[in-house]
Simulated assay, not measured.
Amino acid sequence: MQIDLKGKTALVTASTAGIGLAIAEGLARAGARVVVNGRSDASVDAALARLRAAAPGATVDGVAADLSGPDGAARLTAAAPHADILVNNAGIYGLKPFFDIDDAEWEHYFQTNVMSGVRLARHYMKGMLERDWGRVVFISSESALNIPVDMIHYGFTKTAQLSIARGLAKLAAGSQVTVNAVLPGPTLSDGVRTMLQAVADKTGRSVDEVAVEFVRTHRASSILQRPATPDEVANMVVYACSPQASATTGAALRVDGGIVDTLA
């Protein structure tokens, strides 16, 4: 399958590292003009350098904006007013007991993980519908279906993304604009590597070994029995953004290694 996105502009939020950067690279390799986003100029510049090295000749730009509030979304849409492809990857996560999560933290997760995508979809989907072509992808998680007891506030936001993606797909009914959610499972991203490094140092094992043990212990239903790589998740996202995925909309596309034990 040859995915050709030449002439399309793709915006990937939180794309300076990890899954977001892998998605940006995949879209750039497919010929799209890619706009990367991060919270600082330094992280955006570093990501642009990596993309230009990985995909020579690709057209890549960047916008530094913190999407945890409306001001950041306004800054991003002002700097990049047009997109044919929107990948809502911005999000935060962290382990925390339910009784220790105060109202402010619930609101912070909601604004960052949910409203960031709502604000951008509200802006970019209008143009997509007017042009009768577009792709919107929300990066959700298997935690949307398999709510983790130690990250209930995170799981809630990922479930919300599924509802929004499904509703927006219905909003675009009859058009060539598709809206989908992609649900990664445990993924060995830069952030996860950093989180596991302390355990690896303490036990004298590699981060990869610790990551496999985590999946087999804490996500025992995994069929894959290892974490995914950012590139494996990105492959699904690039497909969902492609012309070939024209009949896939309103879907929750799982890249969870089979963790969620359901046939559908």
Rank of each mutant, 00 (worst) to 15 (best):
P56F: 13
I92P: 04
R52P: 05
A64R: 00
A220C: 11
G134H: 06
P227M: 03
T112G: 12
P148Q: 04
A17W: 07
A49W: 12
A14I: 10
A252Y: 12
D190Q: 13
L27A: 08
G127C: 10
F214K: 14
V137N: 02
Q197Y: 10
V237L: 09
L196R: 07
M1P: 02
A24G: 04
Q244T: 12
G7W: 09
I92H: 06
I152M: 14
L183M: 13
V87K: 00
I139D: 02
H218N: 15
S206C: 09
E232Y: 10
R29H: 09
S143N: 13
I85K: 08
G7L: 13
G62W: 01
G57F: 10
I92N: 00
D103W: 07
T194F: 08
T77K: 00
L129K: 14
V177D: 00
G38D: 00
G94E: 04
R254C: 11
S68Y: 02
G38R: 00
G26R: 02
A173V: 07
G185Y: 00
L11K: 02
L27G: 01
A49G: 15
A144P: 03
D231R: 15
T203C: 12
S242M: 01
Q161L: 15
P148T: 07
I101P: 04
R219Q: 13
D208F: 07
E107Y: 07
A240P: 05
E105C: 11
S40N: 05
S15D: 06
G155P: 08
L67S: 05
P230F: 02
Q197W: 11
T217V: 13
V36G: 03
F156C: 14
P81N: 05
G174P: 06
F156H: 10
T203S: 14
H108P: 06
V87H: 01
T262D: 11
R166F: 08
S141R: 07
A17Q: 13
S206E: 06
T9W: 08
R75I: 04
M1K: 06
I23F: 04
F214H: 15
V60E: 01
L188Q: 04
S175A: 11
S15K: 02
G20F: 02
G191H: 09
D100G: 10
D66T: 09
L95Y: 14
L129C: 08
F98L: 15
T262N: 11
M128R: 00
K202A: 15
A264L: 15
G7Q: 04
N88D: 05
R50V: 08
R226F: 09
L188H: 01
G38C: 00
F99C: 12
L27D: 05
G127Y: 11
K202S: 15
G69T: 00
D201V: 03
G18P: 01
C241I: 10
